[in-house]
Design a protein around this nucleic acid. Structure first.
Lengths: 230, 230
DNA sequence: TTTTTGTGATAGTATTACTATTGTGTGAGA
DNA sequence: TCTCACACAATAGTAATACTATCACAAAAA
């Protein structure tokens, strides 16, 4: 049996749906590779076109500009991750176990998903770590947000916040803790590789240490026997 | 008595020291204003030159490119913040109180420091929130790190990590918790204003809520009466 | 069959990110 | 007092970037 996983994306993210054509899929797969190699700043549609063997104008038929393409890729990642969270927490009753699984999904290295042939998920994961926040760190955030371009991120955040509330219905900051876990799952890995003195993970470069840190952080917040501070 | 606060910056950050001339100070103050207004992506040396009333080439004599200028500004901010942390935690014995003060310094709105006439600290604070991480989220991080361009950030992180260890000498992740607090002090404020559903701070837009969240986060991690998780 | 659609090919423009050169006024040192 | 760096202004120029527009062709849909 051959399975295919296709994620429905917000239509405002693109001019022409890249999932619907060979060129479109090439744009996605090659842009992921190219952004990973050169970094988002040096990435241009011209280089991408040369890489694919098409023309600049060809890319512009799919995406307004490179920032929109980044948002598309990032949104795809969050949607895919939410799907994985759903699968991996399904049929688990203990919310703490759920949360631990989620943290591992966020911070640990990814294996390639064979059902999405044109996306290399492990490279994608590295892109999100290094470039992901650039999707929303712009003057256009609010406008883009009104177009629901960040819905997949917000959905994932809400989903994890629900698990957090299952762990402790009285916890006051489920969504902030959720976004903290998500962001730190990426930032701590980035720091570990590039600015290690901002972390306690030493030269081992092991994502499991980040997982441990985040589990400790989350569980300390949610399983408090101590009295409320004041 | 007139006080002046001058922060000694790493010489690799600039080609000519901007603190040493009127034009240099104008470059700093106007770039802060301009980046705040237009965002770092739209910010160019040409616009800056027009704003100041000099020429592009004039700016290039001080800074190699706009990314270096951003790193300079960000580094200045971290140095200034470390100085403030030192002042505000001086002569306080209780480490928990120290940590709370630090969190407030990080997340709360800033008042203008009259001793640095050419820097508007409140606007600077907003820039760091929105653009700060772009200083290191590049392909050149490791190279820039070798030039010690991020030393002020790492120093601040280490300083807060020390306070964390004072609170609980057995805590395993002082530096990661430190960088988490620093990053989240900014990101949660950014989210509160621009992507509020990633937070629990509602429409109030009050930095004090972020402070409360971070205090809760940190103190839960450091004052554990519960058993170690497994 | 006609029409639409996706693509390739080419051209062109405004802006960006620089580099290089030249001249002028100012201030420090001889 | 001379002069000699110097910081700066002014101008010019280049390669790359970020687009937009037009036309032609082939395949697929109507």
């Amino acid at each position: 049996m051959e399975l295919h996983l296709q994620i429905k994306m917000n239509e405002k993210l693109f001019l022409r749906d890249p999932e619907q054509s060979e060129l479109g899929k090439k744009i996605i797969s090659h842009s992921i590779r190219l952004i990973h190699e050169t970094g988002f700043e040096s990435f241009t549609f011209k280089k991408l076109a040369e890489d694919i063997g098409t023309t600049e104008a060809g890319i512009y038929r799919y995406f307004e500009n490179k920032h929109r393409l980044l948002i598309y890729i990032v949104a795809w990642y969050w949607s895919w991750l939410e799907y994985r969270v759903t699968v991996h927490t399904n049929n688990i009753s203990d919310p703490i176990t759920k949360l631990k699984r989620v943290i591992r999904l966020l911070a640990a290295n990814v294996e390639d998903d064979i059902r999405t042939s044109h996306v290399e998920e492990n490279i994608l994961h590295q892109i999100i770590i290094a470039e992901g926040s650039k999707a929303y760190l712009t003057k256009k955030v609010s406008k883009d947000n009104k177009d629901h371009l960040f819905k997949p991120y917000k959905d994932l955040c809400a989903k994890i916040a629900d698990i957090i509330l299952e762990c402790n219905p009285k916890y006051e900051y489920p969504r902030s803790l959720s976004s903290t876990i998500i962001e730190m799952a990426h930032f701590q890995v980035f720091f570990m590789y590039n600015l290690p003195s901002l972390t306690d993970f030493g030269p081992a470069k092991d994502e499991e240490r980040v997982v441990s840190f985040l589990e400790d952080l989350a569980l300390n917040c949610l399983t408090k026997n101590r009295k409320a501070s004041r």
